[in-house]
């Protein structure tokens, strides 16, 4: 069973082809990495998955819902986190959580906030304005916002960007725990190859809007004859080496 199914997805802006006929699936309960250099089409793909952007062609199905016809039913069961989208800075963390608790129709929202506060260690900052938090605290708050509705599909755009190794590790550990406990499907766009190796069971490699390779991290390492994903990434990004035929 696939939580996310993308078929022949294309996005064109005038002459620019941002995403070019890509297809992939994310099996239910898996963490799938969407990798590629800047301009590869990751953010555009995520924006289409979230229905922020209408595809030029192709189909997206999330949790059994066709995103072109029934996006709100899917959006209620999904969530999203990105360091590039902020929460209102003057509202406290608790107020922000309440806002999204209402928007996602979360039952017993105060209890949910308390639970997330314990799990993500937000107790000390719950009543501080979101704009006064450090980068690490903001990331944990953004993650709490993304988990407020117990999403079945979680889209993460560089969730640990600009975090120190300790905080990054805490976030990754927590994501692993949440996925294991909830059976949530995670689609992760990241430039951190160690993170991808650790979290992802499947990887989709994008370049210039096209899928250029895919497989588990182990399969990709073997295919490119490399020891870490960073080298695989560079091989693909710089056309240094072709995959070794199986």
């Amino acid at each position: 069973m696939n939580a996310i199914k993308v078929e022949n997805l294309t996005k064109r802006y005038g002459e620019v082809l941002a995403v070019d006929d890509i297809s992939f699936v994310a099996p239910t309960g898996a963490t799938v990495g969407l990798l590629g250099g800047n301009g590869a089409g990751k953010t555009t793909t995520i924006a289409m998955l979230l229905a922020l952007l209408v595809p030029t062609a192709g189909r997206i199905n999330v949790l059994g819902h066709d995103m072109a016809k029934d996006r709100f039913a899917a959006l209620a069961r999904m969530n999203f986190s990105s360091p590039y989208v902020a929460l209102p800075a003057r509202l406290t963390v608790r107020e922000n959580m309440r806002v999204y608790g209402h928007l996602y129709d979360v039952p017993r929202v105060e209890q949910r906030i308390a639970a997330l506060s314990r799990e993500l260690d937000l107790g000390a900052i719950l009543d501080r304005p979101a704009g006064q938090l450090s980068a690490g605290q903001k990331t944990r708050v953004a993650l709490a916002k993304a988990l407020i509705n117990r999403p079945e599909v979680l889209l993460l755009d560089e969730p640990t960007a600009s975090l120190d190794p300790d905080t990054g590790d805490l976030v990754r550990t927590w994501l692993e725990q949440y996925r294991a406990e909830s059976g949530c499907t995670i689609l992760l766009a990241s430039h951190n190859m160690a993170e991808v190796e650790r979290l992802c069971s499947h990887v989709v490699m994008l370049k210039k809007g096209r899928v250029v390779d895919r497989g588990s991290p182990d399969e990709l390492l073997e295919r490119y004859g490399r020891h870490d994903m960073e080298d695989v990434f560079l091989d693909i990004a710089r056309d240094r080496r072709q995959a070794v035929p199986a």
């Binding site: 990105s82 928007l103 129709d105």
Partner: peptide, 13 residues
Amino acid sequence: SRNLGHIFVSPLR
């Protein structure tokens, strides 16, 4: 507040 992205990916019509 750069919050529009969060608003429009929520189920808010």
